[in-house]
């Protein structure tokens, strides 16, 4: 017999900058470190490429958690992209919180190309948090479906 309780399979979107964090993910893979399959990586040229709307969009499309990874502050391939991203994301996260979206669902982590192990542990930790939180509120409902 089939169980009626559906197992919660979260959808986690990870934006990773090409130069550090994506390479870090690569290293995690080639070092055979495991991280949850729920994490879908989107490669971006720099953390600064991530328009705040990308994150809203991810939530609207049903993401349960969104994480942005970039080079450590000071190490951005384009010198200062991550400093701008840092301000933008701080404000966005605060706004999401203000709108009633759980603030534990968004995160920024700096992961370098050499930190394969850190990449895996960051993703494991984030996925565990999202698992605990369960399904996200439907951001797409925020305006339309009262």
């Amino acid at each position: 017999m089939q169980s009626t309780v559906k197992e919660f399979k979260p959808l986690i979107v990870a934006f990773c900058c090409n130069w550090c964090s994506y390479a870090g993910a690569d290293l995690a893979g080639s070092s055979r470190l495991s991280y949850p399959a729920d994490v879908k990586i989107i490669r971006v040229p720099c953390s600064c490429r991530v328009n705040p709307l990308f994150i809203l969009r991810a939530f609207q499309r049903g993401a349960d958690g969104v994480i942005l990874c970039g080079c450590h502050p000071g190490d951005c391939h384009y010198t200062s992209g991550n400093y701008y991203a840092r301000r933008r994301m701080t404000l966005l996260f605060s706004m999401l919180d203000y709108l009633g979206v759980d603030r534990r669902r968004v995160r920024v982590e700096w992961v370098s190309a050499a930190e394969g192990a850190r990449f895996a542990s960051v993703m494991n930790d984030f996925a565990a948090t999202i698992h605990e939180l369960g399904e996200n509120v439907k951001l797409e409902d925020l305006r339309c479906k009262q």
Binding site: P73, G74, S80, Y83, Y84, R86, R87, R88, M89, T90, L91, F93, S94, D97, R103, R104, V106, R107, V108
Partner: peptide
């Protein structure tokens, strides 16, 4: 304005959390 500016000592986004 603050969004086209930064300092190295800016708060991390985790301040919100």
């Amino acid at each position: 304005h603050p969004l086209i500016n930064f300092t190295k000592a800016d708060a991390e986004p985790s301040v919100v959390l």
